[in-house]
Amino acid sequence: MENPGLPLTDPRDHFSLNRIPFVVERYRPPEGTFDPAGTWVQEYDYVALGYWHFRTQGSLRIARRPIGNGSVSLRFDMDRIGRTGYSHYIVAEMEAHDDALAVPKAWRMEAKIAKSGDDPPYLFSGMRKMGRLEGATLTVVTGGDAESTALPGPCTCKWSLIDVAQRLPREKTERLRFSLIDEFDEVRHNQYITYRTTAMLPLRDGPAKLTAYEHLGEGVIPTVYWVDERGRTLFVVTGVEAFVLRSSCGVPAETGLAAIQGQPLEKLRAKEG
């Protein structure tokens, strides 16, 4: 992990990490090997950084599996904690090209408000959608309604960018340009992701070398993906939300987030000592 050529970066001074220095400094990544291009499962804590107190808001699980013929299977499970015991659940299964952007071929997604992932939707809130990309035409089917949109050029899905960042070169290259299929149904054009910087960050067990990629485009608050040397996206930071890697291939990280639930963000962001 040592790299004498890089000075230690205080996350409080960094353009993206200044929102979550307390996460960086408490964080111990999962042990184990990792192949970004192989089969893996990663789980993230989803945190919102607005208002005055830190709280975990939900979780995101991504499973990736090459399935041959130049394709991969991606599965996304997202839940956001709601009110009075209800949460919002999203499950999506996708077949995508095994390429740099994981360009989708077809997917199915379901969303609902419910008391648990197994419970029926509350008050007509259940929704299923299917999407497919054939040539330059994107078709999204909702219920019995199909809507087709011209989508020339490469594209990817929002949460696929966690996978994409893990497989990007660890050096400055051309911007990878694409259209974004946001929330599996909304197209946003003029996007790019690109290498931003490499920094030595003070994780719990000492300095660790992480690489940052930035994603900008229409409808996107500038987003930064932080990837470690094993190729795992540890942190995603955008606006007032962040994702923190909780486990990789079944091996847990030590995030330290449980101990700081409800604490004032101002206090957490202050430098200890």
Binding site: Y46, A48, Y51, Q57, I113, T238
Partner: peptide, 13 residues
């Protein structure tokens, strides 16, 4: 009647 969403107070979430 309420469709209960939004545990915290950000649009992102």
């Amino acid at each position: 009647d309420t469709m209960p969403v939004g545990a915290r107070d950000t649009g992102d979430a």
